[in-house]
């Protein structure tokens, strides 16, 4: 049995923390889930930003509707219970009311549709891309290829728990991550070699099925340098939960050096590690 008191204290602490987070949006590290948080991971691409804006609008619609229905229910419970209202009315029609509760929801849906369709087309229409990456899902790892840089296919496996290095995340970190220059517009082609997988990156607002026999396309443009984690999002077998995606958005120079060093090798990893360390110290000095 778990220790109840400990659990309860953890619960209360986390609850307090959560509310603070919810109010301020603080404490959220971009690119990964933050324990106890309530909303999206911070957005780092134009698509994710627009998804969040639209979702905020939706919250402004659905929360009031839910509260409205709850309010109506409470009101009838208080006002029309048998004590308060011993003789029921017999009315069972009200044309005006019925027209209103048909028409008003239609209007609300129109309000939702107006931003919804532009967002959909914005996600789908791939702008002029700087280069293309091809991602292939395998049972149970990803591979990446950069045709424009002539980087051949290299494989990206999850780091097992016992091999985790300082700063790596359980179930999220991989041995050879995907690297892109921050600010570059990347066309992503996704496919699979065996069963269906899904290349999903919450901070980018990207999610695309990897289907054998077909190539799906999407795009992203990472606005800020950093490390971002995602996970396979289509059930693909026993190790579905263990084929994560790790993307490093770096400076153009670091990216070029990484390509030079030969992605999928320890040398290339060293380039990125060095770059990350330099960035860390730079950020630390800023504080």
């Amino acid at each position: 049995m778990p220790d109840l008191y400990g659990e309860a204290m953890r619960f209360l602490t986390a609850l307090a923390l959560t509310w603070m987070t919810a109010a301020t949006g603080a404490f959220a590290t971009p690119g990964q889930p933050t324990d106890g948080n309530l909303g999206f991971q911070p957005a780092v691409t134009p698509i994710a930003n627009r998804i969040h804006e639209f979702h905020d609008l939706l919250l402004w619609i659905i929360i009031p509707i839910t509260l409205f229905v709850m309010g109506l229910l409470l009101w009838v419970i208080i006002r029309y219970n048998r004590k308060a209202n011993p003789t029921p009315s017999k009315n069972s029609h009200n044309t005006l009311l019925e027209v209103v509760w048909t028409a008003v929801p239609i209007l609300i849906l129109v309000v939702i549709a107006i931003p919804s369709f532009p967002l959909l087309y914005f996600q789908d229409e791939i702008p002029e891309a700087d280069f293309t990456i091809k991602a292939t899902g395998y049972q149970w790892y990803w591979s990446y290829e950069y045709p424009d840089q002539e980087v051949p296919e290299f494989f990206s496996n999850m780091v097992a728990e016992e091999d985790l290095q300082e700063g790596q995340l359980r179930n999220l970190s991989v041995d050879y991550p995907l690297v892109v220059p921050a600010g570059a517009t990347v066309r992503l082609q996704v496919t699979a070699a065996d069963v269906i997988h899904n290349w999903a990156m919450p901070a980018f607002g990207t999610k695309m099925d990897a289907i054998p026999g077909r190539i799906n396309e999407t795009w992203f443009q990472v606005e800020e340098e950093g490390i971002y984690y995602g996970q396979c999002s289509e059930l693909c077998g026993i190790r579905h939960a263990f084929m994560p995606i790790e993307v490093h958005a770096v400076s153009q120079d670091a990216f070029d050096a990484w390509v030079e060093a030969g992605p999928g090798t320890d040398e290339a990893n060293a380039v990125i590690a060095e770059y990350s360390a330099a960035r860390e110290t730079r950020l630390a000095q800023l504080d």
Binding site: F54, L58, I112, L120, A200, T206
Partner: peptide, 10 residues
């Protein structure tokens, strides 16, 4: 809304 579902699907 497919636009949001892209973030929430699965």
């Amino acid at each position: 809304n497919a636009g949001v579902d892209q973030a929430l699907h699965d």
